[in-house]
């Protein structure tokens, strides 16, 4: 690919990304949003983050049932620790340790 083409990609990718991150702030911040929409937007957090987790866990081009024991166990442990301790660092550490231990065992 030519250098010029690479920079065209960089410019457009940056603009598109900035647009997606600013559109809600610019158009909704000064507006009264209907209660139904405001309630729906409160569920964006858990929904998008959970969708991200599932997408990463299911892997590249894989399908849902392909998720293995180490992955599932790591996520379950991370969820449980986050529930009890309400601390992301503890949750992450416990999840990763579980993941690596099981990877070493299962292979």
């Amino acid at each position: 690919m030519s250098g010029a083409e690479a920079w065209v990609i960089v410019v457009f990718a940056s603009v598109v990304t900035y647009a997606s991150r600013s559109v809600g702030i610019w158009f909704l911040a000064d507006r009264e949003v209907p209660v139904v929409v405001e309630r729906a937007l409160r569920h964006v957090g858990p929904a998008v983050l959970a969708a991200l987790v599932a997408s990463i866990a299911a892997g590249d081009g894989g399908s849902w049932p392909s998720i293995d024991v180490p992955e599932l166990s790591a996520l379950a442990v991370a969820a449980a620790v986050a529930w009890w301790h309400r601390n992301v660092l503890w949750s992450l550490s416990a999840g990763l340790v579980t993941f690596w231990l099981l990877l070493a065992v299962v292979g």
């Binding site: 409160r42 569920h43 957090g45 858990p46 929904a47 983050l49 959970a50 991200l52 987790v53 990463i56 866990a57 992955e71 790591a74 996520l75 991370a78 969820a79 620790v81 986050a82 529930w83 309400r86 992301v88 949750s91 992450l92 999840g95 990763l96 993941f99």
Partner: peptide, 27 residues
């Protein structure tokens, strides 16, 4: 895989801190 583990913790925290935890969990 590390980001998936971290986001799992964040999902659970966002459910726990939600004013409507049942709906957040369903979402």
């Amino acid at each position: 895989f590390a980001p998936a583990v971290m986001f799992t913790g964040l999902v659970v925290l966002s459910i726990r801190t939600s004013s409507t935890p049942r709906a957040a969990a369903a979402a």
